[in-house]
């Protein structure tokens, strides 16, 4: 299944693109669909396109939830 991992924008790139990061993994994506994207925003990315901006609390709640799911995936 796909997972909605929020990424935080770390830098804006030319031509409507941005770079985002979570846990040292960097991803480049289009921000063409977002209104006024800013460095520091948390976004959800689908197929290389940021489809939604999340507020920080919501992003952190989702990340926390994902961590629980992933921890449940650990081999025992």
């Amino acid at each position: 299944m796909c997972l909605a991992v929020p990424l935080q924008i770390t830098s804006m790139l030319p031509n409507g693109f941005a770079r985002g990061e979570h846990s040292h993994v960097q991803v480049e994506f289009s921000v063409a669909l977002l209104e006024n994207p800013q460095v520091g925003d948390f976004v959800l990315v689908h197929a290389g396109v940021a489809i939604e901006t999340l507020d920080e609390q919501s992003a952190r709640e989702t990340l926390s939830m994902l961590k629980e799911v992933v921890d449940g995936s650990q081999p025992r």
């Binding site: 796909c2 991992v5 991803v27 480049e28 289009s30 689908h46 197929a47 290389g48 396109v49």
Partner: peptide
């Protein structure tokens, strides 16, 4: 596909 490797990256 909604698969994690395909989800976050540009074509």
């Amino acid at each position: 596909p909604c698969l994690s490797c395909a989800t976050h990256n540009l074509p």
